[in-house]
Simulated scan of single mutants.
Amino acid sequence: MPTTNASAAARIDLRSDTVTRPTPEMRRAMADAEVGDDVLDGDPTVQRLEARVAELLGKERAYFFPSGTMANQAAVWLLARRGTEVLLDAESHLIQWEHAGLAALAGVQIRAVPAGAGRRVMDAASLAATIRPPSLHAPKASLVCFENTHNGAGGVVTSAADLLAMAEVARAHGLPVHMDGARLWNAAVATGTPISHFADCADTVMVSFSKGLGAPVGAVLAGSSDALADAWVVRKRMGGGMRQSGILAAGALHGLEHQWPRLADDHARTRALADAIDGVGGARVVPPDTNILMVDLPHPVVPAVVARAAAQGVLLSPWTTTRLRAVTHRDVDDAMVHRAGEVIVAALEAELHAAASA
């Protein structure tokens, strides 16, 4: 049965921060945006966004893309060589959620780097241990990729110091670095670190506007002039040449100004949700750094928990049969987080008790 507008409005959607909808103020900014043909002459609002993000990240140039996935794939195309391998965290978005784009588009294979000892994500030691020694019989590496914050690890922040340590390993092997910084805004807010300090480690950095910043569309790929020398061509080749895209860029600019400062609210709400859930029926939360909460269950009942919560109007993401994900965002306030906690606790108690009794 189709979902009615009334029931949709009553839902508490914690599946992702991508479900945010533009505020009325953002919609007005988009409607009033100054525009031009970005492919032919350059769109003035897009140019303002690109210049602003390049400045924030401490990079020479930046390009506006329709999506973070396209920007990530363009970066790999620009920096890696066909027939080589790219090193990146084993649970990274580029491996898990981009439909084998590295192989299909850039012609490279992945070499997955395990999490560092006692960590949830790769570090300098695990990266160094994974890079192959030179051999006539093994593929060469041509690129290292980081992800910050790390989605699959539960919104984990890798510190600027740890990023630079990994970058030193990459440079020692003559490898460029790309960073998937879709939620880098969250990392900066959570740590108080200037966003440019995170970006210092990388030749190219992707940041997204369609998650915590609440814009409907868009990402930027920033980097040095050398790294991005062919970025315009690669974006066009991938279908990312947009026309009056200032309408979209205006939403991103509005998000930067008005939504970035309030990401700390999302982080606080995630911690509150974690406190409500942890330990219920043997469930254990992954302590959240930012706005993503992973919950590990002692029995493979995640699909049942998700279905039971959805029946009560709370939407969650099944990550595995024993791990579920909840993500806070600007469309979820304190009262909704409290209600979501009650629903999730009840669902966990019911399903985990049934599984333990079976």
Rank of each mutant, 00 (worst) to 15 (best):
M1R: 14
T4L: 05
R11S: 07
S16K: 06
V19C: 06
E25L: 13
E25W: 01
A29W: 03
D32S: 10
A33N: 08
E34A: 12
E34C: 07
G58R: 03
G58F: 01
F65N: 02
T69L: 13
T69A: 12
Q73F: 00
L88K: 09
D89N: 12
E91R: 15
H93W: 09
L102D: 07
G107P: 06
Q109G: 14
R111T: 13
R111L: 13
V113F: 06
A115Q: 10
A117W: 06
M122A: 15
P133K: 13
H137K: 08
S142H: 13
G155V: 06
S159L: 06
A161I: 04
A172V: 03
D180E: 13
R183Q: 14
L184A: 00
N186H: 15
A190K: 07
A190C: 02
G192Y: 04
I195H: 04
H197Q: 14
A202Q: 12
G218K: 08
A219V: 08
A219N: 10
A219K: 09
L228M: 07
D230R: 15
V234P: 04
I247D: 03
H254R: 08
Q259W: 04
A274D: 13
D278H: 13
G281R: 01
A283E: 04
L297G: 05
P298T: 05
V305L: 09
R308D: 15
P318W: 03
T328K: 05
D331M: 15
D334H: 06
A347P: 07
E349S: 13
S357F: 05
